[in-house]
Simulated assay, not measured.
Amino acid sequence: MADPQRSDPSVVLLPPVGNDARTWDAVDLPDAARLHQFPGFGRPRAASPLTMAGLADEVVAAHPGPLHLIGVSMGGMVALNAALRHPDRVVSVLVACTGASASPAVMEQRAVAAETGGMAAVLEDTLSRWFTPQALAMAPAHPGVAYARELLLGLDPAAFAAGWRAIATHDTAPRLGDLGMPVTAVAGGQDQASPRSRSEEIASRAPRGRLVVVDEAPHMIQLEQPAALGRVIAEHLEWSAGRPG
């Protein structure tokens, strides 16, 4: 039987909070890329509260062999946690529009807002954090905005709240120096939710880190700048393999 640790690494895509596998539809992904979905978002909710540690362990358990983890926002947070918890399995990480830690108080506020007001009450505030004003002005013609609006209004508010509370457990900042694998931190120049400084922290403190800035990208880079993200992913995989990207 072949040793799974010696197989070619799998590319696993990890979505933002609330998003399902459709969030990658417009991105040019590598062949055989695996699209992971978190509990409550494209699959049933978990019976127990979500945590970054639990989500990270689940990703590694669900996808055998060595892994390239690609994540946006919450997906990037899970990728960082997985890399720290399973350095023998994660061979590279690309995190877009995310940071090394999160504010528990802010995440709890978002969770409570969804639980008490429902998804319609948090819709516009969420979209304004996720997209540029230009994309929002195009709605409903903009496909990324249309997807996000439909997705959010269809979510169980309790699932959305559980996602925010999982993010509240994210704090990898003290251990960024332990990331021995190649790490690409992607910042969106138009990202209001996760400023460039958060990506700079990851890139500068990871021993093999590098920063890539997509000037036109907002927080939902995969929905508003999918072509640019596809190029960045391809370049990351080339770079992490030791080939010029």
Results as ranks from 00 to 15, higher is better:
39 P>G: 04
243 R>S: 10
27 V>K: 05
98 T>M: 08
201 E>F: 01
95 V>I: 11
152 L>W: 06
56 A>L: 10
220 M>P: 05
89 R>I: 14
115 E>F: 08
80 L>R: 11
17 V>D: 06
23 T>C: 13
186 V>P: 03
98 T>L: 13
135 A>Q: 03
19 N>H: 10
41 F>M: 05
66 P>W: 12
57 D>Q: 08
64 P>G: 14
185 A>F: 03
47 A>C: 03
138 M>S: 15
12 V>H: 04
50 L>F: 13
88 D>T: 13
198 R>F: 06
102 A>H: 07
50 L>C: 11
166 A>D: 01
82 A>Y: 12
157 P>N: 01
116 T>E: 15
191 D>L: 01
184 T>R: 13
213 V>K: 09
24 W>L: 03
183 V>S: 04
113 A>C: 10
8 D>P: 01
111 A>H: 07
90 V>N: 11
219 H>F: 08
192 Q>T: 13
203 A>Y: 02
92 S>Y: 12
157 P>Q: 00
85 R>T: 12
77 M>C: 15
128 S>V: 07
82 A>Q: 13
235 E>A: 15
202 I>Y: 05
78 V>C: 11
153 L>P: 03
26 A>L: 08
140 P>F: 06
144 G>S: 03
149 R>M: 01
139 A>D: 07
146 A>S: 14
77 M>H: 12
87 P>L: 12
88 D>A: 15
104 P>A: 09
202 I>P: 13
26 A>M: 10
216 E>V: 05
80 L>Y: 15
34 R>P: 00
24 W>Q: 00
125 D>Q: 15
46 A>D: 09
242 G>Q: 10
97 C>G: 14
242 G>I: 11
93 V>F: 08
36 H>P: 02
122 V>W: 06
92 S>T: 12
208 R>A: 05
204 S>M: 09
61 A>I: 05
149 R>Y: 00
206 A>P: 02
92 S>G: 12
189 G>N: 05
115 E>N: 10
52 M>G: 13
151 L>D: 01
11 V>L: 00
149 R>N: 00
186 V>K: 00
207 P>F: 12
143 P>Q: 01
204 S>A: 13
63 H>V: 15
83 A>I: 12
60 V>A: 09
207 P>D: 01
